Simulated scan of single mutants.
Amino acid sequence: MGDAGSALWLSEAFAAMAEALHGQPSRDQVLQEITELAATTADGAQYAGITLLRRGKPLESPAYTHPLVQAVDLAQAEAGEGPCLQESGDADGAVVRIEDMSGEGRWPRFAREAARLGVGSMLSCRLTQERDVSGRLNLLSGEPGAFGVETAKTVAVLATHAAIALSAATAIENLSNAVASRQVIGEATGILMERHRVPSREAFGMLVRASQSLNVKLREIALHVVSTGQNPAELGPADFAGAARS
């Protein structure tokens, strides 16, 4: 394919990707769509996945096209090293290429396990970099040398488009959650006002005090009141097994 034909193909692929990502209603669905598109768009890719690293927490694999991708993430976590744990490579770690996993020297423990799993080469591209969380888009192939320089450039552009779509989906999801929380808190406040004949400020204070004393999210307290009508002052830890306050 000539340069003009390649450019046209990429333009069409990215346009289709933008349309597909725009149509996804949630963050998790956007993440899964990104992996599917990457696996079918990038030359040499057999599998794709997204890895998230949150401060103080283990690696997460929220989306992948094959269990092998998740196994590779686990190999990085167990080895304590790998492209998703250590910023390295082109443009300060924006794009990392492992051309031959069996001869990879930057992360030898991880590379040995990945090669044992059947990974010949890997391309890892930064998807997002925030204060408390970083994400990478990873492509895997069973063959060494599957990802050339041009593929790395293509995936970097794809990751830029995907990061924008992910940011938008996250913002929408956060807004939807905030609206839902506000609604349920309002319902719980109304129930307490009616049952205890108290003004709205006092009813809301009842919810807040229960949240603080139990170390449980205000929304969880409100949901319990809406579903049971129970006085927040009578609630105990057993009513919120697994719930945590943020």
Score class of each variant (00 low, 15 high):
S6Y: 15
A7R: 03
L10Y: 12
A16M: 08
M17Q: 06
E19D: 09
L21S: 09
S26N: 04
T35R: 04
A45I: 09
A48P: 07
A48C: 12
L53R: 08
R54N: 05
P58T: 10
L59W: 02
V69M: 08
G80I: 07
E81D: 00
D90F: 12
A94K: 00
V95W: 00
R97A: 03
D100F: 01
W107P: 11
G120M: 12
R126H: 13
T128K: 15
R131D: 03
G135C: 05
G145T: 00
A146D: 00
A152Y: 05
K153W: 06
K153Q: 04
K153S: 11
V155I: 05
V155F: 05
A156N: 02
I164L: 09
T170A: 15
E173C: 10
L175V: 13
N177W: 08
V179S: 01
S181N: 04
M193E: 10
H196F: 14
R197N: 15
P199F: 05
S200A: 10
E202F: 09
F204I: 09
A210C: 11
N215R: 06
E220G: 04
S227L: 08
S227I: 10
G229Q: 06
G229A: 11
G236V: 15
P237I: 15
A238T: 07
D239E: 07
D239T: 14
A241Y: 05
A241L: 05
A244D: 01
A244K: 03
